[in-house]
């Protein structure tokens, strides 16, 4: 079943008089439960594509259907509600709130939503943090963790609301190759256990090996799209 369908998505940035076209009509369909890597040289449009899919930015033209809903015509406010409810994010680095503990960082998306009871929040947070292997670090601050551990907390935070889709822009770029592999293995395991869809960008060949499908971007176009 298809989760996401992009048709002829174009994104142009204008800075002063200069116009940059970052995406030149991208057609892409993503099925539920996929584990998809977006690769390509620097400047090819990976981040732009993820931003648009993640409703952090709007496309200049084209259609984006998410789970049957057309997002292309939504305004910033509606998009932010949509993003809050349906998408988990893992950023490259520095993405935990430094003054909050691991527990508080992970519960943040639930607390913002105010839909879940405190007891439920507590049990969900503990469960997910244990799942990413940091059950004993719940009350630590981000500064007390290693880069890999921080990234695990980000994954826990992205998953705590059990979204259908998790987006990650170069989630392993700041990690050494051994830690990078651990992180991608963790993502893969969750993808298999929970059927959560993962879309991530990467430069790392080692990380690419774990992807079930690799989409290669070049100059804002999809150059190759291979499933394995």
């Amino acid at each position: 079943m298809e989760l996401l369908q992009l048709t002829q998505v174009i994104k142009k940035y204008t800075k002063g008089n200069i116009e940059v076209t970052a995406l030149r009509g991208v057609d892409l369909t993503i099925e539920k439960g996929e584990f998809l890597a977006i690769v390509g040289p620097s400047g090819s449009g990976k981040t732009t594509l993820l931003n648009i899919v993640g409703c952090l930015d709007t496309a200049t033209s084209g259609s984006i259907r998410y789970n049957g809903t057309e997002l292309g015509k939504m305004d910033e406010k509606a998009l932010s509600v949509y993003r809050k409810e349906n998408i988990g994010f893992i950023f490259q680095a520095y993405n935990l709130i430094p003054v909050l503990t691991v527990r508080e960082n992970v519960e943040l998306p639930l607390v913002i939503e105010k839909k879940v009871s405190p007891r439920e929040i507590r049990s969900r947070v503990e469960k997910i943090v244990t799942k990413v292997g940091l059950g004993d670090k719940l009350d630590r601050l981000p500064a007390e963790l290693s880069g890999g551990q921080e990234q695990r907390v980000s994954i826990a935070r992205a998953l705590v609301k059990e979204p259908l889709l998790v987006l990650a822009d170069e989630p392993t770029a700041n990690l050494d190759s051994k830690t990078a592999e651990e992180i991608i293995e963790l993502m893969k395991r969750i993808n298999q256990e929970k059927k959560t869809t993962f879309v991530f960008s990467t430069h790392d060949a080692l990380v690419q090996r774990y992807a079930a499908r690799i989409v290669t971007l070049k100059d804002g176009n999809i150059a190759t799209d291979e499933r394995r």
């Binding site: 994010f89 520095y94 709130i97 943040l108």
Partner: peptide, 13 residues
Amino acid sequence: IREVGVLRALGIK
């Protein structure tokens, strides 16, 4: 700024 960005991405108004 980054921290604010993360909070915004997580849905804080």
